[in-house]
């Protein structure tokens, strides 16, 4: 019997659902081993019993919340796919403003569907078995995950910061030139893609397990990185992680 796969999207850009499709598209033989039972994009919108459910997006509406609880009941294994699912990602950017302030700026209408006060990562609402963070989630990591599952092997995210990969590629350090790069505190596994293309790391893969905050802050101060900018960059993906308040307290900047 083929492994039953379900794909669900809560609120988000659905780029991670596309990543999942892209991963399958590069490996169509997988369809002999797995069966897609649920995926609105493929043409099966109904919720079904599944061996593995991939869930992307964050919990933003009442409907997301209801759906997610239902998904948990119907799926043996749940994979939080992408940064919205693991850390609520950019869905949280609006939470810096209160709902009232947002609604005040909305022309004439009220939102026709019920929104929660704050966006939540799915990991905060239900028990999640695996996490594949990234904005968007990485095709190569999805691929590796699938292979492990098929071979009944366990799957673990790589440990250590983005800097490992940056150094392995011989890329010049962006912190050294005063850029607000979160590479030293962010989990690797992205192949330092952003830095390779000249963009500092925004931390989309979430904090690394063994975080060396003091060492990071020392290096940040040494290279005259703007501390306010640093915290502002952390808001993009890390608003829902403890690290932002820890660093904020240590730096004593608001």
């Amino acid at each position: 019997m083929r492994i039953k796969i379900a794909q669900y999207s809560l609120t988000g850009c659905e780029g991670c659902a596309v990543s999942l499709i892209n991963a399958l598209a590069q490996n169509l033989e997988l369809l002999n081993i797995i069966e897609i039972v649920t995926s609105r994009i493929i043409g099966h919108p109904e919720i079904k019993e599944a061996d593995i459910a991939f869930v992307d997006g964050a919990v933003v509406t009442e409907h997301d919340l209801k759906l997610l609880n239902e998904i948990r009941k119907r799926s043996k294994v749940i994979v939080a796919l992408g940064t919205c699912a693991t850390l609520s990602g950019l869905c949280s950017l609006k939470d810096l403003y209160d709902q009232h302030e947002l609604e005040k700026h909305v022309y004439g209408i009220r939102l026709p569907i019920a929104h929660l006060d704050n966006a939540k990562p799915i990991t905060e609402v239900i028990k999640v078995d695996y996490q594949l963070p990234g904005c968007p989630s990485f095709v190569s990591e999805i691929d590796q995950f699938m292979k492990n599952i098929i071979l009944s092997k366990s799957f673990k995210l790589p440990e250590g910061p983005v800097c490992f990969e940056c150094k392995a590629k011989g890329l010049p350090c962006l912190l050294d030139i005063g850029k607000t790069c979160l590479g030293p505190i962010t989990r690797r596994g992205c192949n330092a893609q952003c830095i390779e293309y000249g963009m500092p790391c925004w931390g989309c893969r979430g904090p690394v397990d063994e975080i060396r905050i003091d060492q990071f802050l020392e290096s940040v101060k040494k290279h005259n990185v703007d501390l306010k900018e640093l915290l502002k960059t952390m808001e993009i993906y890390l608003l829902k992680s403890n690290i932002i308040s820890t660093i904020g307290d240590k730096l004593e900047v608001k």
Binding site: T11, A17, D64, C91, Y97, I113, K232
Partner: peptide, 29 residues
Amino acid sequence: SEGARFFEYAIRGRSIYEAPLIMSRICGI
């Protein structure tokens, strides 16, 4: 009935260098 993410509001106060890549996240396609 997709949830609202208020990108146009949340981008206020942010740097022009971040804007294109933040706004990219409006859509995964």
